[in-house]
Lab assay of single mutants.
Amino acid sequence: VTLFVALYDYEARTEDDLSAHKGEKFQILNSSEGDWWEARSLTTGETGYIPSNYVAPV
Rank of each mutant, 00 (worst) to 15 (best):
E11R: 08
W37Y: 10
L29V: 06
A12N: 04
R40P: 04
S19W: 05
D17Q: 15
Q27W: 15
S41E: 04
T44L: 01
Y10E: 01
I50L: 12
V55M: 13
T43P: 01
K22C: 08
R13D: 06
W36P: 05
F4R: 00
G23L: 02
G34Y: 10
S31Q: 14
E15W: 08
P57N: 04
F4P: 00
E46C: 14
V5I: 12
N30M: 07
N30S: 11
E46V: 10
H21Q: 12
L3T: 10
Y49M: 14
L7K: 04
A6M: 09
Q27R: 06
S19P: 11
S52T: 07
E46H: 11
A6C: 09
Y54E: 02
N53W: 15
R13K: 11
W36Q: 07
E24S: 02
T14M: 10
D9I: 03
T2P: 12
L3W: 10
L7I: 11
I50Y: 01
R40D: 04
E33L: 14
F26T: 00
L29F: 08
E33C: 15
A39T: 02
S41Q: 03
S41M: 02
H21N: 07
F26N: 00
S31I: 12
F26M: 04
A6Q: 02
E33Q: 14
T14L: 08
A6Y: 01
V55G: 02
Y49Q: 07
E11Y: 09
L42H: 05
T44D: 03
L3Y: 12
P51Q: 06
A12R: 08
A56V: 13
D9H: 06
V5N: 01
L42W: 07
W37Q: 03
E15F: 09
P57A: 10
N53Y: 13
N53S: 14
E11M: 10
E38M: 15
V58Q: 06
E24R: 00
Y8P: 00
N30P: 04
T43A: 12
P57G: 04
F4D: 00
D17R: 13
F4L: 06
L18I: 13
E38L: 15
V55Q: 00
S52I: 07
T2A: 10
S19C: 06
S19Q: 08
K25E: 09
E15N: 12
Y8N: 06
T44N: 05
I50M: 04
W36Y: 14
S52R: 11
P57L: 09
Y10K: 00
G34N: 12
S19H: 08
A6F: 08
D17V: 12
A12F: 03
W36E: 04
T14E: 08
L29W: 06
I50K: 02
G23A: 01
S41N: 11
S52H: 08
Y49G: 03
Y49P: 01
T44G: 02
T14S: 14
F26Y: 04
F26K: 01
D35R: 06
V5L: 06
A39F: 15
A6I: 05
G45V: 02
E38G: 02
V1P: 12
E46R: 14
A39Q: 00
L29M: 07
T43K: 09
S41A: 05
Y8E: 08
A6N: 00
A39L: 10
E24G: 01
S19N: 10
E24M: 03
V1N: 12
E38S: 06
K22L: 06
G45W: 07
E38D: 04
Y10F: 15
E46Y: 09
V55T: 03
L42T: 08
A20E: 02
E33N: 15
Q27D: 06
A6K: 00
G48I: 05
N53G: 11
D16V: 12
I50P: 02
S31C: 15
R40A: 06
R13I: 10
E33R: 14
Y54G: 08
F26R: 00
P57W: 05
L3D: 05
A6H: 01
G23C: 08
S32D: 10
V55Y: 03
T14W: 12
P51Y: 08
S31V: 11
S31G: 09
G45H: 05
A56M: 09
G48M: 03
Y54V: 15
E15C: 13
G45E: 04
T47R: 10
T44E: 03
T14F: 15
V55R: 00
P51H: 10
P51G: 04
E38Q: 11
G45R: 01
N30E: 07
E33Y: 11
E33I: 12
D35L: 11
L29E: 05
H21C: 12
F4I: 05
S52D: 02
W37S: 02
F26S: 00
K25Q: 12
G34R: 12
T2H: 11
D16C: 15
P51A: 05
I50A: 01
V5H: 04
G34F: 08
T47M: 08
G23R: 00
G23K: 01
G23V: 02
A56E: 09
D9P: 06
V1Q: 12
K25G: 04
R13G: 08
W36V: 09
E38W: 15
G34D: 12
S32G: 11
A39G: 05
R13W: 07
V58N: 04
E38H: 13
D9T: 06
D17A: 14
T14G: 15
L7R: 01
I28F: 02
W36F: 13
L42K: 03
D35C: 13
L29D: 04
R40G: 05
E38T: 09
V5Q: 07
N30R: 06
L18M: 11
A20P: 01
V55L: 15
L3P: 04
N53Q: 11
K22A: 11
G48P: 00
D9E: 06
K25W: 14
V1K: 11
R40V: 13
G34L: 11
V58D: 09
N30K: 07
R40I: 13
D16R: 15
G23N: 04
L42R: 00
Y49F: 12
P51T: 03
T14P: 02
A56R: 09
Y49D: 01
V55F: 14
S41F: 03
K22G: 03
D35F: 12
A20W: 06
W36S: 07
I28K: 03
E11H: 12
T44R: 03
Y54K: 08
P57H: 06
